[in-house]
């Protein structure tokens, strides 16, 4: 990756910083090497959104009942409105989260990016993976998706790829495990 070689205009400071960087800032979260991010399944949004909906239904109904008993109709309406707002927010965040996820299998490591509020980019060398597991919650199983999680010796490595179709998830796990075994380095 080379820095951009645009003529840096003296007036715009950011381009100078980009010069300093060696990587253009707008490509900081790109997979690099002309690769494209592999995206997670659309069902991720549905799974997360439905999960949020269930919770909001429960909380909204319970809250509305309590509000009805204590404050009458006004309290119940406020709580239901609150639940609806939270639900809308949750769906938006679910969609944004789905869009933020991307992973790329490079020659020696796996790159993963995600995050709506805190954007993250994680590089996990295959040789560092201790184990890879595939998990699927009840709602995930309804949608036929699973989460692939990478574990290294560092607890801070929080690399999991959610919402892959089950077949794809197991294939990815097997591929990662094989690459990890080939390049395993111990600690």
């Amino acid at each position: 990756m080379n820095p951009i070689h645009d003529e840096p205009s003296p007036s715009s400071a950011p381009s100078q910083y980009e010069e300093r960087a060696g990587y253009p800032a707008e490509q900081a979260f790109a997979p690099g090497d002309g690769r494209a991010w592999s995206r997670v399944s659309r069902r991720h949004t549905w799974s997360r959104g439905l999960s949020a909906t269930l919770w909001c239904l429960l909380a909204g109904a319970g809250g509305a009942l309590a509000g009805w008993k204590n404050g009458g109709a006004t309290g119940a309406v406020i709580i239901v409105a609150l639940a609806v707002v939270v639900l809308a927010f949750a769906w938006i965040v679910a969609e944004l989260t789905h869009r933020s996820y991307g992973y790329a299998e490079r020659d020696d490591d796996l790159v993963l990016t995600y995050g709506v509020f805190v954007k993250r980019l994680i590089v996990v060398p295959y040789g560092r993976m201790q184990f890879v597991d595939v998990t699927a919650g009840p709602l995930d199983r309804v949608f036929g998706i699973a989460t692939v999680r990478l574990h290294t010796a560092a607890a801070a490595t929080d690399a999991s790829i959610p919402a892959l179709p089950v077949a794809e998830a197991t294939a990815l796990r097997d591929r990662l495990a094989r690459k990890g075994e080939e390049r395993s380095m111990g600690l």
């Binding site: 990756m1 820095p3 910083y17 980009e18 300093r20 960087a21 060696g22 990587y23 253009p24 800032a25 490509q27 900081a28 979260f29 690099g32 020696d108 490591d109 980019l121 590089v123 060398p125 040789g127």
Partner: peptide, 18 residues
């Protein structure tokens, strides 16, 4: 770190580690 610089550090460290 600047965004681009940060990414450059990430790539550099990953390659050096390898």
């Amino acid at each position: 770190r600047d965004l681009g610089e940060a990414r450059a550090i990430v790539e550099s460290v990953a390659q050096r580690a390898l």
